[in-house]
C-alpha cells in the first residue's frame, strides 16, 4: 500500500485567518443548532399534544405535519425554505426580506432545522403521552383542571421524564443535522472545514478537527442531559444506570 507523501499540517486549524474561521464556524454551529432546538421543542410539544387530544381536526393536522417531515429528506426542506419560501411572499415581502435580513441562509437554516426536528420531537412526546395511564388524565380533570392546565402541570412534565433518553438523542441529531445547512451557504463548522481546504489543501486536518467538535459537543450534551435527568428523576421509576 503506497502512502502518498502527505505533509500533515495541523497548524492550519489555529493559524490565522483559519483559526478564527474555525472558531466562527463552531460558534455558528452551536448557535444555529440551539435556536433550531428551541423552536423544535416548542413546536414539537404542541404537535405532539395535537396528535393525542380528542379533537379530530387537531389530530389530523398533527399527523400530516409529522408525515410530511418524516417522509421528505431534510435537504429538500432546507432548499424549500431557502429558495422557494421567499418566492411565496408578496413582492413587497420579498424586498423587505432581502433588505432587512442580513444572513437569510442562517435564518432559513434555523427555520428548516427547527421545523424538521420538531416533527421528531412531536413523535417522542406522543409516545410519552400514550404511555401515561388514562387515570392520570381523569384525576386531573376530576379536580377541575382544564385540559390546558392538565397538560401543562401534569402530563407534559411526566412525559418529558419518560422520554428523556430519546429526547437527548434527538438533541444530538439536531446538532449533526446543522451540518447540512452548508448546502444553502451557512458557514458552520463543516462548511468551514471544507472551505479551508480550497485554500490550503489540508482539508483532512480541518475535517478531523470538525469531527472532534461534533464528538465533543455530543459528549457535552450527554453529560448535560445526564445532570438534568438526575435533578428531575421520579423516585421509583426505572432509569439508566450510568
Amino acid at each position: 500500500m503506497e502512502i502518498i507523501n502527505y505533509q500533515f499540517d495541523w497548524s492550519v486549524i489555529w493559524q490565522q485567518p483559519y483559526g478564527s474561521m474555525m472558531l466562527k464556524g463552531m460558534f455558528t454551529t452551536v448557535l444555529l443548532s440551539f435556536l433550531a432546538w428551541c423552536i423544535a421543542v416548542v413546536v414539537g410539544i404542541t404537535i405532539g399534544v395535537f396528535r393525542v387530544v380528542p379533537v379530530r381536526s387537531l389530530r389530523i393536522f398533527g399527523t400530516c405535519y409529522v408525515q410530511v417531515f418524516r417522509n421528505i429528506p431534510f435537504l429538500v426542506h432546507l432548499f424549500f425554505w431557502y429558495y422557494a419560501a421567499p418566492l411565496l411572499l408578496p413582492k413587497s415581502g420579498q424586498m423587505w426580506l432581502y433588505d432587512t435580513v442580513p444572513n437569510y441562509a442562517f435564518l432559513a437554516g434555523v427555520m428548516g432545522l427547527g421545523t424538521y426536528t420538531a416533527s421528531r420531537v412531536a413523535e417522542q412526546f406522543r409516545a410519552g403521552f400514550l404511555s401515561i395511564s388514562p387515570g392520570q388524565f381523569r384525576a386531573a380533570f376530576a379536580s377541575g383542571l382544564t385540559p390546558f392546565q392538565t397538560y401543562r402541570y401534569v402530563i407534559i412534565p411526566l412525559a418529558f421524564r419518560i422520554i428523556l433518553p430519546s429526547f437527548t438523542t434527538e438533541f444530538l441529531t439536531c446538532f449533526k443535522n446543522s451540518a447540512l445547512t452548508m448546502t444553502i451557504g451557512v458557514m458552520e463548522i463543516t462548511h468551514t472545514a471544507y472551505y479551508i481546504d480550497s485554500f490550503t489543501w489540508h482539508g483532512l486536518e480541518t475535517t478531523t478537527a470538525a469531527s472532534l467538535v461534533y464528538l465533543t459537543l455530543g459528549l457535552f450534551v450527554v453529560t448535560l442531559m445526564g445532570q438534568v435527568e438526575k435533578r428531575i428523576k421520579i423516585p421509583g421509576m426505572i432509569t439508566r444506570r450510568s
Binding site: 395511564s133 387515570g135 392520570q136 381523569r138 384525576a139 386531573a140 376530576a142 401534569v154 412534565p157 411526566l158 421524564r161 428531575i232 421520579i234 421509583g236 421509576m237
Partner: peptide, 10 residues
Amino acid sequence: VFQHFELYPH
C-alpha cells in the same frame, strides 16, 4: 378518588 390512586408521580 380512584382505584389506582392516580397520584402524580413526579
